[in-house]
Amino acid sequence: MLGVQSGVWRRARSGAVPGHDPSWALSGRSSAVSRRDLLRGVLAVAGLAGVGSVAGCDLIGGSSDADDPDVPPEITELLTATVALADAYDGAIARVPSLAERLTPMRDTHRTHAQALAQALAEPTPASATADGPSDPAAALAELVDAETRGLEAARSACLAAPARLAGLIGSMAAARACHLEVLQ
């Protein structure tokens, strides 16, 4: 029953940010944070709650989940929102490099979840986008807390609506988000 040691003890990740290219995240942008930047950041975070579903359908090329009637639309929306959540971390890491070591494992978790969910749905992983937001560390963390809170609720309700084959994965996404909130606050 308690043969659970494997995978529990893991070594700390290095401070490097694998696969992250700050020039990509900041492309075409000045380093100053305008009011418009902040508004777009807020909208990007709002999108994590699932209101970005229209864009999500475009990104994944339409309603292929309609062929799979046991997958409710909120699960497809969860996939899009999970990519947006990882993008929010990428944005925060680019703007506040001192948070990189702390945030990178959580960013990687969201990317891994997005890939796993896309694979389970036989959908392509939605494309990433640049997420704007505050450059102040406390404000950047507060924005991620807000995004994770919405993300937890979305994953929780998607898990309760999920077909059996997806319930474990989506439940794991919810549990991981709750753990992120524990360490972000």
Partner: peptide, 28 residues
Amino acid sequence: FIACAVMATRWREVANITPLTVTYPGAR
């Protein structure tokens, strides 16, 4: 599931075991 995963994370925080979070809580 969520409560156990969060409690595991709280223990990692108290014991200073990193990373504090895992991608798949409860994975065997």
